[in-house]
Simulated assay, not measured.
Amino acid sequence: MTSTAISPIEVARQNIGAYKGELLASLPSHLQDKGVGWLTSALSALRKNDEVLRCANQDPGSLIVALSQAAQLGLMPGTDEYYITPKGGKILGVVGYQGEVELMYRAGAVSSVIVENVYEKDKFQWNPGTMTKPIHEVDWFGGERGKIIGSYAYAIMKDGAVSKVVIVNQERIDRAKKASATAGKSFSPWTSDEAAMILKTAAHDLAKWVPTSAEYIREQVRAVRDVANEPAKPTTETKPEGVVSPRQHHPEPAANTVTGELIDEGETTTEQQVDYDSEADAAWLAGTGTK
């Protein structure tokens, strides 16, 4: 009697499947109906990179930790929102550029987030003493823009105010790269998409100056709870002229994490390039495969 060897991707399916329920339960409400896509994105990230898959199977605990963080943050693993990378035989989860921006939008305090790289042939002006935001001119039809010399980021708040402008120069880029656990490796995002990682550095620095989802939503929930616990006012009280009762809150449409434009319900903020074995993965995603 011969035994059939289990493929590496099947081992990964089994490892993730053992925690599938917990991972999906950790997803925030806006992703609860996209659980299948979230799992597909995680599995696709493993299949696309042999080193990632090897480390995921070598240390499945580190994979589950990374996926748990992505789930709790509400970010798509294996995309520019949340990278799945190998490190020392283990899996390391890294919040990407779009993930940093997504968390700012989700907080609800900003109307737009601007994060741009500056190239050596661009025209860039910024004087914090006399300007509220930088002037960045690009010749979009002039061909090669040269190498990246820095980056900047700022947010326009819902009330129209401009946040602190964050400037990332070459020294800051070098420090971010040096601090990266995977910089210099062939599989590192710093190698495969350095421009995105420089944008991520600027977005990460900006996040220190604007509300992100965790802290901001916590305050909003606390405020709603405090109002709900207030004693009811007498109904005979006359309302001041011109004051109307607050309308029932309706969530605003989601915003594209890059442009800030509103998107239709059901449209995802990050396009996925899915690569999976349709029969085996479909059964697994549907809950009928190996767990």
Rank of each mutant, 00 (worst) to 15 (best):
I148M: 10
W190L: 04
Y105R: 04
P128H: 06
S245N: 11
S3N: 13
K164F: 02
A280L: 14
E22A: 15
D80Y: 10
E194A: 15
Q170M: 14
M197F: 07
G289Q: 02
F187Q: 12
V95M: 15
S278A: 14
G74K: 01
V165W: 07
S3F: 10
A202M: 05
Q272T: 09
P8A: 02
N49G: 11
H249Y: 14
G184M: 11
S41V: 00
H30N: 13
G89L: 04
L199R: 14
N256F: 05
D275W: 01
R13I: 00
G160E: 06
Q272Y: 10
G17L: 00
R222W: 01
N117C: 09
K20H: 02
K133H: 10
A223S: 09
K185Y: 02
W38P: 00
V36T: 13
T235K: 14
K147W: 04
G88L: 08
T259M: 07
T2R: 09
I148A: 12
L39Q: 03
E241N: 13
Q220D: 07
P189M: 02
I217A: 11
L43I: 08
K233W: 07
K158Q: 13
Y276A: 12
K87F: 15
Q14S: 15
E241F: 12
T236P: 03
K291F: 08
V113I: 15
S163M: 03
A228K: 09
T238V: 15
A228M: 08
E22V: 13
A286D: 14
L206K: 03
T201W: 02
R218Q: 14
N15H: 14
G184A: 07
S245R: 10
L262G: 11
W126L: 03
T212M: 02
P128A: 15
A109Q: 09
L43Y: 10
E171K: 11
D80H: 12
M197Y: 05
S44N: 14
T132N: 11
I84G: 00
T182H: 06
P234A: 13
T40R: 08
G37E: 14
E215T: 13
T290S: 13
T2P: 08
S188W: 00
T212E: 06
Q272C: 08
H204W: 08
V65D: 13
A282W: 01
E81C: 05
T191S: 15
Y119C: 09
P240Y: 03
A223G: 06
H136N: 05
G160M: 03
V52Q: 04
I114F: 03
L206Y: 01
Q32F: 00
G37V: 01
Y152H: 06
V244I: 09
I64D: 02
L27P: 06
G260W: 01
K147P: 03
I167K: 10
G88P: 03
I148G: 07
A42F: 01
E252Q: 13
S7F: 04
K178Y: 07
G184V: 06
E215G: 10
P8T: 02
T269H: 04
A214N: 10
L285Q: 04
R218C: 06
V258F: 08
V11K: 15
R47D: 14
N229V: 00
G88V: 05
Q125L: 12
E100T: 03
D33S: 15
Y154T: 05
G242L: 07
V168F: 00
G142I: 04
L67K: 03
L262S: 12
E137Y: 07
L262E: 11
S278L: 12
V101I: 14
A179T: 05
D159T: 08
G260A: 07
H249Q: 09
